[in-house]
């Protein structure tokens, strides 16, 4: 099946020699939510800007639903909606006027019913005649989303969409994202709230110093790079890990009251854990409680960034 977005060997070197992207390739399927993660300055916004036509790439090829973004830019751009990171709005325009303007700009015929639906979905309907300058930051963010949705895009870029917005609005936005995905819209988001990416994304891409160092299904990523940590609370403190358990790589918690066992989840096998408990019994160690923790996407992200 043809990818809805195909990025092939894209590089970008800015004037002055700064290399923002190095040979980035990526295919996205229709209807998926893709989270692009990376530290500030990694190249996330540059990649989005190139796809949307705001920055010229130095090398490579990008197609949206098979339409080359340079040779066939009209067809490609009609399919794309962009919510930029910064709150760039026309302060003196009304909400209705600015959203209607966006629809026209993207070549769509006037459709008041659709604009009304978008504004209602984003809880903006009662603000439709308000000037944007009178709105709060969160409401301005909603306006930007409404503008991006005004021309019914099939690919939506959300560049840090929840930066600086309150919890309620953030939840509203993720509800909207779910609804858009259900409607077949492909969503590419960058976020600093990794728990959001963990909750929402189907696939995760990690970009570091302009290189896409990893693209994985989220669940596969969690399995591959995630770790579980088992804490065994002992009935009696130990001074050191018994030699019989040395092969398990156990760590003794401060105070000797617990043993800590960290293990990967690569194949989902529980054999190592059962072997550990067998050896614990053999060593005659009694325990009173167990506690497990699993790595979050944030832990994985931090580990990946440390691995540079």
């Amino acid at each position: 099946m043809q990818p809805i977005l195909s990025v092939q060997n894209v590089s970008k070197t800015y004037e002055g020699g700064f290399v923002a992207l190095k040979n980035v390739s990526l295919d996205l399927s229709q209807g998926e939510i893709f989270a692009l993660l990376g530290p500030n300055g990694a190249g996330k916004t540059t990649l989005i800007s190139i796809i949307c036509g705001l920055v010229n790439m130095t090398e490579g090829r990008i197609a949206v639903a098979g339409h080359d973004i340079v040779a066939d830019y009209r067809a490609a751009r009609e399919l794309i909606g962009l919510v930029p990171q910064e709150l760039k709005t026309d302060s003196f325009e009304t909400v209705w006027a600015t959203v209607s303007f966006s629809r026209g700009l993207f070549g769509k015929k006037r459709n008041d019913a659709y604009i009304e639906k978008v504004l209602r979905d984003l809880s903006l309907w009662d603000k439709k005649d308000s000037k944007i300058m009178t709105l709060s930051g969160g409401m301005k963010r909603r306006v930007l989303i409404a503008k991006a949705l005004s021309h019914e895009p099939r690919v939506l870029f959300l560049d840090e969409p929840t930066a600086g917005v309150d919890v309620e609005l953030r939840r509203d936005m993720w509800r909207l994202v779910s609804a858009l995905r259900a409607a077949g819209v492909t969503i590419i988001l960058t976020t600093h709230y990794l728990e959001e990416a963990e909750e929402m994304a189907d696939r995760i891409g990690v970009i570091r110093k302009g290189e896409l160092i990893l693209v994985e299904e989220k669940t596969a990523l969690m399995r591959k790079f995630g770790q579980k940590r088992l804490t065994i609370q002992l009935t009696a403190p130990l001074a050191a890990v018994p030699p019989a358990l040395a092969g398990h790589g156990l760590e003794l918690a401060p105070g000797g009251q617990a043993l800590i066992y960290a293990y990967g989840t690569t194949n989902g096998s529980h054999a190592p854990v059962s072997a550990l408990f067998h050896d614990l019994d053999q060593a005659g160690l009694a325990y009173k409680d167990l506690d497990t923790e699993q790595s979050t996407l944030e832990d994985i992200f931090v580990d990946l960034m440390r691995g540079e």
Binding site: C52, G53, L54, Y73, R74, A75, A76, R77, E78, I80, L82, P84, E86, K88, T89, D90, S91, S102, L105, F106, G107, K147
Partner: peptide, 17 residues
């Protein structure tokens, strides 16, 4: 003005020549 406030991004990303 759109360049100054940043809203030019929309025009530049639109399917317009």
């Amino acid at each position: 003005f759109p360049r100054f406030v940043g809203t030019i991004y929309e025009v530049l990303s639109a399917p317009v020549s």
